[in-house]
Amino acid sequence: MGSLFTYMNHEVKSAGRILDILEYMTTLRDGVSLSQVMRDLGFPKSSTHGLLQTLMARGHVVQNSAGKYILVEASRRGFPFRRNEEPLVVLAMPFMQQLRDRCGETVLLATMNANCDIRRLAKCVSHHPVRYDVNMDSAIVPYCTAIGRVLLAHGAEEAVEAYLARTTFLSYTRFTVTNRDQIRRLLIKVRRDGYAVNDQEFVTGSTGLAAPLFDAGGEAVAAVNLGTLTSRYLARREELLLMLRDTADQISQSLGSLSEDPRRDPVAGREQEPRREPDRR
C-alpha cells in the first residue's frame, strides 16, 4: 500500500511540475536555458531536463539554435494539438524561426481538414514594432487568404468543390475576389506556381504569402505563411517569396517529400506543369 501511494504521489508531483513549467514559460517571450528554468523554479536538473524533453516530444516546446527552450505559441494560448500535429510542429518550428529571423516578418503554420476548415498550429511573430500578427484561434477564411488558397489548391477535388459550392463569398476589403469561377482559376494558378499571395484581400494594408509542405508521399499536409505589411512586401516581394519557398522546400525535404512530382489540379482535375520560379524582371 505504501509503495502504491509513493508511486501515485510521484506521478502527481511530475504532473504538477509540467504545469509549473508551462505556466512559467507563458510569461516569457524569449528562449530560456535549462539552468534558468532550474534556478527560477527550484527544480533539480535531472527531472527538469526530462520534463522539458517530454514537452518537446509532445510539440509544446522547441529549442532554438542557441539551445534555449521556447514555448510554442499554440501552447501559450491553451490550444491543444492533435496527435499527428505534434511532430509537424516540432519539425517545422526551427525552420520557421530561421525564416522569421532572416526576413524579419511573421511566420505561420497551418493545416486543413477534409471539410476545408483551416487550423493554425504555430507562429513566430516578427520583432518589428509595427508587424503582422493574428490570434491562433481566430477564424481563417480559405478563399481570400494565402494560406487558405494554398491548402485549397492542394486539397481533394470533391472537398474543394463542396467548399466552393456552400460558401458565401464576402468582400472583406475592396480587393477581395468573390467570384466563384475566378477563385477556381486562382487555385489552378496557385497549384501550378507553388505559392499564393493574398494582397490586401482580407485586411487592408497587410499581405500574406504561403507555400505548401509535402510529405514523403507527395501530399500537401500543411502550409507555411509569411505575413507582412503591404508596404514592406512591395519593397521586397521577390526576396520574401524566395525565402518563403526555400523554407517550405527545407521543411518538405525534412518530411521526406519527393520533389517535383506531377500534381493534379484539384479543381479542374487535370495534370499541371511543375511549379515555376517567380519572374525576376
Rank of each mutant, 00 (worst) to 15 (best):
M1A: 13
G2Q: 14
G2E: 15
A15D: 07
D20L: 04
L22P: 01
Y24F: 09
T26M: 04
D30A: 13
G31I: 08
G31Q: 08
M38D: 00
L41S: 00
S46T: 04
S46Q: 07
H60K: 07
V61Y: 01
V62R: 12
Q63P: 03
A66R: 04
A66P: 00
I70N: 07
R82W: 05
R82E: 15
N84G: 06
V90R: 14
L91G: 04
L99K: 09
D101V: 11
A110D: 08
C124I: 11
S126D: 07
M136T: 14
A139R: 10
Y143D: 09
L151Q: 03
A162Q: 09
T167Q: 12
L170A: 06
S171D: 05
S171Q: 03
F175M: 10
V177E: 10
I183Q: 09
L186T: 10
I188K: 11
I188G: 10
V190F: 07
E201P: 15
G208D: 04
A210C: 12
A216I: 08
G217H: 07
G218W: 09
A220V: 06
A223M: 01
L229T: 10
R236G: 12
L240S: 13
L242G: 09
R245A: 02
T247H: 05
S252F: 01
G256A: 05
S257Q: 00
P262M: 02
R264Q: 01
R264V: 00
G269P: 08
E271P: 00
E273L: 14
D279C: 08
